[in-house]
Nucleic acid binder design. Structure first.
Lengths: 393, 393
DNA sequence: CGACTTCCGCCGTTGGTCAATCAAAAGACT
DNA sequence: AGTCTTTTGATTGACCAACGGCGGAAGTCG
């Protein structure tokens, strides 16, 4: 027998082929046959199905290489829309995106999270419906909803678990509530987790080991390892805010322990420290403003906070060995000082093998990492191989 | 839509069906059809193939439920054998196991790892051939070889990467060398990683988030998260030995930094500390002996080392949120003192959500975790769905 | 002992994939 | 310009794996 018959015996399904096209580049049938190892006739049938479903569209002809020019096909990211919700303690940011995380409309509003899940989620649903209408799309175009919450979330049920800053939200049926209003599947996760997802998707698509650190009112991390989000056994992984740091063993944290990173280096902690030193600041935003204004004590405090955070991140580097650490949250907007402090300690404290390919960078998403991540999470649930195969009939 | 129609439309291949039988329990065709959702005839064909390959065997009839009694089939773990190698700095432990990690023969020998890969691997191959012969099996029965090395290992190539305690082994072609001698595929990984695999397989098969901590000459951890080993970007994840601890910022570590956990709480560090305090001890084994003999200073030192390790593990708990932490390595044999120190700090320092379901236990494998893990890793490469489907013809 | 139940092997059907074939649409060459 | 070559696109028949039904086998129950 010849050596060609046993080329690729793996049956590549419709969904798997579709993943190849999700990058938005046009492909010819021959390209896809080449990549998947399947017959052209099979590919043609697959493409017919996907075109019929609206997820794929012909994209003109490519240049001929000497014969008949091949027709190309592209992923139609605008076939459906996705709603992304990033809920914070005081604000909610909503975005309507297409299936490739391109923002079509965006909005930010203040909310009082203590009003409880019913009121807040209804408000979000109202805003969402208006925002979708503003893009000229129908609610029926909505394929999925992604939500990020500032709380530990049981990702399988989408319910918050003992959220410290969301009174009344424990075990609230967030997906159910929003699904009843918006008639689309709803996925919920912790805000830092989706920020990690978002930053990876938009900036580091080829990085399989990424740590996203949010420095704001609290400090938390989202862990991507081997290409996937790692949430831990109870979904509370990445909670680096309550790791003990040597400095400030006398500082009491709201969690009841002493010397937590969050009690020393978060936005609020720095503000309180500056106030005690005679430089009035109430919140992390005030600290950022001071640093931007060139205030010396504030700059020094932020840099020192960076060092403290760096001491914890050095441990994370040893444990997780990431390729990229992204620093986000509003304190990251305070310029390079906090990054410098972090880098200083991490590169000094970790082993060379772990740091030689490690990049420590500020988030480039200008506060949109959460929105991007929520969109990615929602789109992924609709466009995953299994989901595609399921909608085929 | 109702909840029953979407039962299991996924096409379950031969390999996937086989996984169901790997637990060793006998199953009827009807059982398997029920679980996989496939037709009885399909299951029958699959079973015929697996029986022909020797991996499955008829296991008599189950009790009738009113009709003809069904025939059952079990995984034949003794169809092939696996060689497990756990190489340490001074000793090598070999085991011949069946495909279900049951040890058929075991042996421990001293080696000088500084003799270099050629000599050491040849020695191991010689020992392995003799050990296999002692079980009455043929070398041709060998399905795969699993090797654990006390070094960072690039798991994809099986080569050690800049091993600190293995001079001359950098980038050595361990798999190639052993394959040439033993004529079977060889898988290599870091020793702590395979210990994590082994402990999970033998003691905590249902735990998807497990941290294995080895406390011996060095201190390291193997991380299992979402059911899989997480090695990090360069394969040096879990290297907790060089995380800084507050205590002992004056102690210089062999890595060049100061205040590393390993420089303070490893077996050698405790021995050195005791010696300075007037209680002579050269190695971790001496420390264990002293503790067992009821020596007060040694017991206190071990407990304090436990606390120090606990302070690092508390951070790991916050980051990884595991369900189980297993303490292994020869220092773990020093009784409950080290565990008590670890528990004391971890349960005090971590958040209740993370600790309420967390168990911190000593390894129950009596030093065999490495062997078990090497066997599991090797068997897995032979019995994975893809491997099964590949051998079907 | 007969009726019933359940399991097992066999076989025709079905659906999906493949390789082959032919038509169509371009560029290349004379 | 006309023809040839090359590559794509659509169709077709063959093949294979999986399915579901059928009848026989091997038990239990009354």
């Amino acid at each position: 027998m010849d050596g060609l018959t046993k080329f690729a015996p793996r049956p590549t399904g419709v969904g798997e082929m579709f993943q190849l096209l999700r990058d938005g580049k046009p492909r010819t049938r021959a390209d896809l046959a080449q990549i998947t190892g399947q017959a052209r006739s099979t590919i043609a049938a697959r493409i017919d199905v996907l075109v019929a479903s609206g997820l794929l569209a012909p994209a003109g002809e490519a240049t001929s290489t000497g014969g008949r020019p091949p027709g190309t096909f592209v992923f139609r990211a605008d076939a459906r829309i996705v709603l992304a919700v990033d809920l914070g303690a005081t604000h909610v940011r909503l975005a309507v995106t297409d299936l490739a995380t391109t923002v079509l409309a965006e909005q930010q509003e203040t909310v009082t999270i203590a009003d409880g899940p019913g009121a807040v989620l209804d408000r979000i649903a109202d805003l969402a419906i208006a925002l979708i209408a503003s893009t000229g799309r129908e609610i029926t175009d909505l394929a999925a909803v992604g939500v990020g919450l500032p709380a530990p979330v049981d990702h399988t049920t989408g319910r918050p678990v003992s959220p410290p800053i969301m009174p009344g939200w424990h075990n609230a049926d967030v997906p159910g509530h929003l699904r009843r209003r918006l008639h689309a599947p709803v996925l919920v996760d912790n805000d830092v987790n989706i920020m990690a997802l978002g930053e990876r998707h938009t900036e580091y698509p080829d990085v399989d080991h990424l740590l996203f650190v949010k420095i704001a009112t609290g400090i938390g991390a989202g862990i991507i390892s081997d290409g996937g989000l790692r949430r831990g056994a109870q979904g509370v992984g990445g909670d680096i805010g309550h790791i003990a740091v040597p400095r400030g063993s006398e500082v009491v944290c709201h969690c009841g322990n002493v010397g937590c990173l969050e009690a020393v280096a978060s936005g609020g902690a720095i503000a309180a420290e500056l106030t005690r030193a005679g430089v009035p600041a109430a919140t992390g935003a005030d600290v950022v403003a001071l640093v931007r204004a060139g205030n010396g004590p504030a700059t020094r405090a932020v840099r020192e906070a960076g060092r403290t955070i760096g001491s914890v991140l050095a441990g994370c580097v040893s444990v997780l060995n990431p390729s990229v650490i992204v620093i986000g949250g509003n304190l990251a907007s305070a310029g390079e000082d906090i990054l410098a402090g972090i880098r200083e300690v991490v590169y000094q404290r970790s082993l060379p093998v772990a740091t030689q390919h490690l990049r420590i960078v500020a988030s480039r998403s200008k506060g949109r990492a959460g929105i991007y991540g929520a969109s990615v999470m929602a789109a992924e649930s609709v466009l995953s191989p299994a989901a595609i195969e399921a909608l085929i009939p």
